[in-house]
């Protein structure tokens, strides 16, 4: 059952990787076309995700599960904004644009702002200078937090400079090594997928 999809993965992966190296305009056009096709498949994957969301909340409403009233809010907002967007568009001045600026944008930024408290409380409970490694992490985090605001300069005029040094030297070295590791890992995983060695993405048979 999986031989066909595995062959399709191999052909599509090998083709797009090969097309990258061919500068001929036909090859580049084929490259762009295949990437546009993936955008379409991605859009349908999002529709699939929304169907799943709809089914999950509709089931709660049908069964009158605990908090089903909130599921009605999700279903109504999902349906209303999708319908408005399909009907009136999503550009500037459209109803969906108004909803985005009034509902989505404030909710998204407030949710992320809330994370400031969550991270702070988690750090307060988890951060203990029990070893050299933990102390380094703790001290760097504190210096970074204080050094990038005005009070840091009031405490010591050297603090902003130390912050910059931490970012530009030890942080850069570690991030660079991580980036190289991630790159090597991504390339080897991609090769394993194209060659059919890695198959877990196809799920269980």
């Amino acid at each position: 059952m999986r031989r066909g999809p595995l062959l399709l993965t191999f052909l599509s992966g090998a083709a797009i990787a090969a097309l990258f190296f061919i500068p001929h305009y036909r090859a580049q056009a084929a490259n762009s076309m295949l990437l546009e096709w993936t955008l379409v498949v991605y859009a349908f994957a999002l529709i699939l995700g929304s169907i799943s969301l709809w089914n999950s909340h509709a089931r709660k409403v049908r069964n009158r599960a605990e908090g089903w009233g909130f599921s009605v809010v999700t279903l109504v907002s999902l349906l209303a904004i999708t319908a408005l967007g399909v009907w009136k568009g999503v550009g500037e001045g459209t109803p969906v644009d108004w909803i985005y600026n009034t509902v989505n944008s404030p909710l998204a930024s407030t949710m992320f702002a809330l994370l400031a408290f969550v991270i702070a409380s988690a750090a307060f409970r988890a951060f203990r200078a029990r070893s050299v490694e933990a102390t380094l992490l703790l001290v760097t985090a504190i210096v970074m937090m204080i050094g990038r605001v005005s009070i840091g300069e009031l405490i010591s005029h050297r603090l902003p400079g130390i912050t910059e040094w931490l970012l530009d030297v030890p942080n850069l070295a570690a991030k660079r090594a991580i980036a190289i590791g991630v790159g090597l890992g991504a390339v080897s995983t991609a090769l394993k997928i194209i060659l059919g060695i890695e198959r877990s993405y196809l799920g269980r048979s």
């Binding site: 929304s50 999700t74 907002s77 999902l78 904004i81 509902v103 989505n104």
Partner: peptide, 12 residues
């Protein structure tokens, strides 16, 4: 509301 609005916006 955020979940529904975000999914609806993404779909649109």
């Amino acid at each position: 509301l955020f979940v529904g609005a975000a999914a609806g916006y993404l779909l649109a």
